[in-house]
């Protein structure tokens, strides 16, 4: 006997409202990893410029949705047309939230680099790199997991 408490659209055929191809965020994370690696390896003026660009991409993803990043655009125009439709669709909110977390790290890194605290900035970029690499290589979305924890924490505050 099988019972499912919250029925949601079955895998495959139909695309739920606002559902995104889960391979999109994963490829975006791979591209983001490359950018963040370059930020760590490039000499002084270039790292700041590149990090600012990545912060802009994070901001766009956080504010206008995950589909609005340059990485997502690359996936849509270059990669997606060559792939079969995905077997599953994914809700866009958690990866979007993860973009906001990435933006936080990128901004800390950017401010630190601009203020001359190079190592602090690079550590912040390194942490963002860990999150992006985990998503790209293992399909693990740290920001997505934080999403439930934060929902738990904020709802608790409301309840008590």
């Amino acid at each position: 006997m099988t019972t499912t408490a919250t029925p949601r659209s079955a895998a495959g055929a139909s695309r739920p409202d606002g559902g995104i191809d889960p391979r999109g965020p994963q490829l975006a994370a791979a591209l983001t990893s490359v950018v963040l690696l370059a930020v760590l390896l490039l000499p002084s003026p270039y790292d700041v410029v590149l990090l600012a660009a990545q912060a802009g991409a994070f901001a766009s993803g956080a504010v206008r949705g995950v589909q609005a990043t340059p990485q997502a655009w690359l996936f849509r125009t270059l990669v997606r047309p060559r792939l079969a439709p995905p077997s599953e669709w994914e809700a866009p909110e958690p990866p979007r939230f993860a973009q906001a977390v990435g933006l936080g790290f990128a901004l800390v890194g950017l401010l630190a680099l601009l203020a001359g605290a190079t190592v602090v900035g690079q550590v912040a970029v390194g942490l963002a790199l860990v999150a992006a690499l985990l998503n790209a290589a293992f399909g693990l979305c740290l920001g997505c997991e934080a999403y439930l924890l934060i929902r738990r924490a904020t709802a608790r505050r409301i309840a008590s």
């Binding site: 190079t118 690079q122 390194g126 790199l129 860990v130 690499l133 290589a137 293992f138």
Partner: peptide, 23 residues
């Protein structure tokens, strides 16, 4: 190696460790 390169290496090592532990 520069500090940035060391941090990059550390990030990759940490990622692989975390990923394998999770798996």
């Amino acid at each position: 190696m520069t500090t940035g390169a060391w941090i990059a290496v550390a990030a990759v090592v940490l990622t692989v460790g975390l990923g394998l532990w999770r798996n």
